[in-house]
């Protein structure tokens, strides 16, 4: 099998979101002598990029995104020890602590953002919904995150985004993190008023802001 067809197969199984077939493709590629690094960079990453682009063109939706991201993570658990053995540990683009704020159980928007961040190479720690302000901060400190991303849908729950910033300030670690806010009832004016570092109306906006934040260092 040519390298090109190996990479195509890896990409296609990512796009299909089939984690078992992806793992099989990864194992076959290793047997053919392809390095773990090339499997990721030339096979799986282009597949992930294609998934993200199809999503922005409304050709696929959240389930396909989630399944592709799961397949990626499944394969990476297998590949990461091999990268370490080869002394080529893959550098993450950045680490994001993500969640829906306390009192708010809306998850879809947050989940879409998480999937798009993973597509872009971020390591995402999704804390779920109804997350206390302190939990965002504690997790960010624990995993040495670059970014805290907080979603809130309702006008009565957006104050919890401000609370996260206040908790960061109280612990004296505000400057360590880029804080991004989003969700139905938020806007740029709100983000500015609470001292957030960015506002994303869409998942695409949030990803672009996150990439910009890590590129600044």
């Amino acid at each position: 099998m040519s390298d090109e067809s190996i990479y195509e197969r890896l990409g296609a199984t990512i796009i299909a979101g089939d984690k078992d077939k992806l793992l099989q493709a990864v194992e076959d590629a290793l047997r053919e002598g392809v390095t773990p690094s090339d499997i990721i960079e030339k096979g799986m990453s282009p597949g992930m990029k294609e998934v993200g682009e199809r999503f922005t063109r409304y050709e696929i939706y959240l389930p396909e995104m989630m399944m592709a991201a799961e397949a990626w993570e499944y394969a990476m658990k297998f590949l990461e020890p091999k990268l370490l053995e080869a002394g080529t540990e893959r550098k993450k683009v950045g680490r994001v602590v993500l969640g829906t704020v306390k009192g708010d159980v809306h998850s879809i928007g947050k989940t879409i953002v998480g999937a798009m961040l993973k597509m872009s190479g971020f390591e995402v720690f999704d804390l779920g919904v109804d997350v206390a302000a302190s939990a965002f901060v504690t997790k960010a400190e624990e995993v040495e995150a670059n970014i805290i991303a907080a979603s809130a849908l309702m006008s009565t729950t957006i104050p919890q985004q401000k609370s996260i910033i206040e908790h960061l300030e109280a612990r004296g670690v505000r400057s360590k993190y880029c804080v991004l806010v989003g969700g139905g009832s938020t806007n740029q004016e709100w983000a500015d008023s609470i001292g957030a570092d960015g506002y994303g109306r869409t998942a695409g906006d949030a990803t672009a802001l996150a990439l910009k934040a890590v590129s600044k260092g």
Binding site: K102, G103, D104, T156, T157, P159
Partner: peptide, 14 residues
């Protein structure tokens, strides 16, 4: 509509 403030304070759900 949804009221956002009472007596100048922003409403926090819960």
């Amino acid at each position: 509509p949804c009221l956002t403030h009472v007596d100048g304070q922003q409403i926090v759900g819960g």
